[in-house]
Amino acid sequence: MVRLLANWLLSAIALLIVSRLVNGFVIDSFGTALVAALVFGLLNVTLGLVLKLVTLPVTILTLGLFLLVINAFVLELASGFVRGFHIRSFGAAFWGAAVLALIQMLFRFLVNESN
């Protein structure tokens, strides 16, 4: 349970960092980031999983880069559900997904190093 909460907090922090680095990717507050991280996680586990399975051949052909497109789509969808979370264009969503993936990779590395 503690690990799940820590992952949720780190995801919210990662979204805040992305909002500072990517133009057109806007999160109003930390509370909004917490809700956005929750909604993005739920959408990614449900709809994102289905999309990843359906587009598996394209993902293989692009050596996994198409996963960024799927994550960008799910981020844009999540922004439609959360007040205070706005993505102005698909380009912002794509670069936001790329930066988010890098930040989450860094967080996973740092958390695993401390264990």
Rank of each mutant, 00 (worst) to 15 (best):
L49F: 06
E76A: 08
I70N: 07
L43P: 11
G41F: 02
P57M: 05
L43V: 13
F73G: 06
R83Q: 10
G84T: 03
V54C: 13
L43Y: 12
V58R: 01
A98F: 15
G96L: 06
S89Y: 07
V54A: 13
N71I: 01
L61D: 00
V50L: 15
T46A: 15
F30Y: 14
V39W: 02
L51V: 03
S89D: 14
S79W: 04
L75A: 13
P57F: 06
V82D: 14
V54P: 08
W95L: 14
G84S: 07
A93E: 11
A37L: 11
F94L: 15
L63A: 05
R83N: 13
V69F: 13
L68V: 09
F66V: 06
L38M: 12
L56G: 00
L42M: 12
L65F: 11
G96W: 05
S79C: 14
L56Y: 05
L67A: 13
V74F: 07
Q104T: 14
G31W: 11
K52A: 10
R88H: 05
V82S: 12
L51D: 14
T62E: 12
G48F: 01
P57G: 11
A78P: 07
V45R: 03
A97K: 02
I70E: 09
V39D: 00
L63I: 06
L38S: 12
I60V: 14
F90T: 06
F94S: 10
A101Y: 14
I87D: 11
V74N: 07
T32C: 10
A92D: 03
V58M: 10
L49S: 10
G31Y: 08
F81K: 00
A92S: 14
T32D: 12
V45Q: 04
L68S: 11
S79N: 13
L53H: 00
F94R: 03
L102T: 04
T32E: 11
T59A: 06
L67I: 11
V58L: 14
A93W: 03
G96Q: 08
L68E: 09
A37G: 15
A93Y: 04
V39K: 00
L38R: 01
L49T: 10
T55E: 00
L102M: 08
T46L: 14
L47S: 02
F90K: 03
A33P: 02
L77C: 05
N71M: 04
L42W: 03
F90S: 09
A93G: 12
L38A: 15
G96S: 13
F66R: 01
T55K: 01
G84H: 02
L67S: 14
V45I: 14
V39C: 08
A97H: 01
F94M: 12
L68W: 15
G80P: 00
F85G: 07
A93C: 08
F81W: 06
F73V: 10
D28F: 03
L65V: 08
F85R: 02
L65S: 07
L102F: 11
L34W: 12
A101M: 14
T59E: 06
L47T: 09
L68A: 15
P57S: 08
A78W: 08
G48W: 00
G48P: 04
